Structure formats: structure tokens, C-alpha cells
Simulated assay, not measured.
Amino acid sequence: MGIFLFLLKLCSDLISRRVGTLFYFAQRQGSARDRDGAWRELETSLKRLQTNYLDLWQFHALTHDWDLDTILSKGGAIRAAIEAKKQGLIRSVGITGHHNPEIIVKGLSRYAFDTALVPINAADTLEQLEKNIRVAQQFKPLLSDELAMIEQLY
């Protein structure tokens, strides 16, 4: 067993003792961005986390237009997310990116994702940081009524 699987098992054991007090999330980072591949990854995440649902499932590390095109296509990973949401396996679906924050903006214009993560990383170049900050500044904060509605979901 590799170190990653060992740590995942250790975390799963610790998590299973605290059910009901945790926010469960998983990021899909595999190369499969199709519906069936995403579904298999979701099942694996649920099994490894020893839970029957995720609060948030994220499509991680979007970089190129083809990432979005593939995920949002007729047979894309978004289909797995829509099905999983209907079945109560996930509550929210989001997108993340590292090196091309504009792809997050494009993604949000093409699909009503519940969350978006734009990283601000001190290890990035100054140019990359400035680009990420410009994109993050385009997001408006939630109103208190909106926050209250979200809190009631959990």
C-alpha cells in the first residue's frame, strides 16, 4: 500500500468516528472527464471516505477550453454530477483551477456550478497572482439572506 492510500485509510478511520460534524468533499482530478469515469471516481471517493454522500464534489484543475467542453458535453462528467445530486449522493458541485482563472469564469457562464475555487498561491509568479486576484474580484459576496439559506441546507 502506497503512502497516499495509507494516509487516506488513516483519515477515513478518523473521519468515521466524527460522522455528523464534518463537511465531506472530494475533488475529481483523474484524467477521465466523462460521465462513466466520473461516476467510478465518485463511488471510490464515497467508499474511501466511508460515507454515503458528499457535501461538495469538485471538478478539479480545469485549465483548457477542452476541459470544460468535455465535462459539459452530452457524455461528460457533469452528467454524473447531475445524477448524483438527484440521488442525494452529492449536495453541491463545483469547479477549481490553478493556472487559468479565466476558465473558471467561462465555466460559470456555461453552467450554474454551486461553488468555484480560484487559488491565490504565494508560490505563483506575480503575474499569475495578479491574474487570479482579478478573477476573484469579479465574484460578488453573498447577501446575508443568501448565506442564511445556505446554512439551513446543512
Score class of each variant (00 low, 15 high):
Arg17Asp: 08
Ala26Val: 00
Glu43Ala: 00
His98Gly: 08
Ala26His: 10
Arg79Leu: 07
Leu126His: 14
Phe25Trp: 03
Ser12Arg: 03
Gln87Thr: 00
Tyr154Leu: 13
Glu130Arg: 15
Lys140Thr: 12
Phe59Ala: 09
Ile95Leu: 10
Leu143Val: 01
Ala80Arg: 00
Leu62Ser: 03
Trp39Gln: 04
Asp55Lys: 03
Phe113Ser: 07
Lys47Glu: 08
Glu41Val: 02
Lys47Gly: 02
Leu89Phe: 07
Ser16Glu: 14
Gly30Ala: 01
Ala122Asn: 11
Val105Asn: 12
Leu117Arg: 04
Ile120Trp: 11
Lys9His: 07
Arg17His: 07
Thr63Ile: 02
Asp124Ala: 13
Asp13Lys: 10
Ile103Asp: 06
Gln58Ser: 13
Gln137Cys: 13
Leu8Arg: 06
Leu143Tyr: 12
Asp69Arg: 11
Leu68Glu: 04
Thr125Glu: 10
Lys86Leu: 08
Ala77His: 04
Glu146Leu: 06
Ile78His: 08
His64Glu: 15
Ile133Tyr: 10
Ala38Asp: 01
Leu129Ala: 09
Arg28Val: 03
Ile150Trp: 12
Val93Pro: 03
Ser12Cys: 05
Phe139Ile: 02
Phe23Gln: 02
Gln138Phe: 02
Leu129Pro: 00
Leu147Gln: 11
Thr115Ser: 13
Glu83Asn: 06
Phe59Gln: 03
Ile150Asp: 09
Leu7Pro: 00
Lys131Leu: 13
Thr51Tyr: 07
Gln58Glu: 12
Ala84Pro: 01
Leu108Cys: 15
Ser16Tyr: 06
Tyr111Leu: 04
Ala77Thr: 10
Leu62Ala: 06
Gly94Ala: 08
His99Met: 12
Leu89Lys: 14
Ile104Asn: 08
Glu102Cys: 04
Asp13Ser: 08
Gln152Asp: 13
Ala116Trp: 04
Leu126Ser: 15
Val105Gly: 06
Trp66Ile: 14
Asp145Asn: 06
Ala112Met: 10
Thr70Ala: 05
Glu43Gly: 05
Val105Gln: 14
Ile82Val: 14
Leu54Ser: 05
Thr44Asp: 06
Arg28Asp: 09
Ile15Val: 04
Ser31Trp: 05
Ala61Leu: 07
Ile82Pro: 00
Leu49Ser: 09
Ser12His: 00
Ile71Thr: 05
Asp65Met: 06
Trp57Met: 10
Gly37Glu: 02
Glu83Phe: 02
Thr115Leu: 13
Ala32Asp: 12
Leu117Ile: 13
Lys85Ile: 05
Arg18His: 06
Leu7Glu: 04
Gly30Cys: 01
